[in-house]
Amino acid sequence: MGKQVPVAEGVFTWPSDEPRLIGSKCTDCGNVMFPTQSGCPKCSGQTTETVELGRTGTLWTWTVQGYPPKSPPYAGDASPKTFEPFGVGYVELPGEVKVETRLTVSDPEHIEIGMEMELTFVPLYTNDDGDEVVTFAFAPTAS
């Protein structure tokens, strides 16, 4: 039985009991970006600091990926026979930024703009070492 590993280093904190997305904050104007980057698109500032983003927010917009993405680049199940549609959206993190993310829900009947969301993780695929590769996702907040 393999362990869980992140899809990439530096995108979210890992391992962690309460993982967070890793972004940048402009040291000149305070603009928050995701993922990390070295310059600021708002004020053209040239220095940023790494910050951990909030774990909860509201759904700003969404769609459902209804057909298998081309692979590559997609690393998850792209087989037309077994592909399962997945939700994608932008979650507005208060005072920070709107992040694009997979959603744990994919039924349009259960997705609504403005709903409360929180950060979690979903499995993507099993790598050659037998490890389960995971990426970040947002889930509706349990009420």
Partner: peptide
């Protein structure tokens, strides 16, 4: 980053659906 496409978000169609 490669993680963006690997995670299933590098699709122009998603943007148009969301917009």
């Amino acid at each position: 980053g490669d993680w963006y496409g690997e995670s299933g978000m590098a699709l122009t169609t998603q943007f148009f659906g969301m917009k």
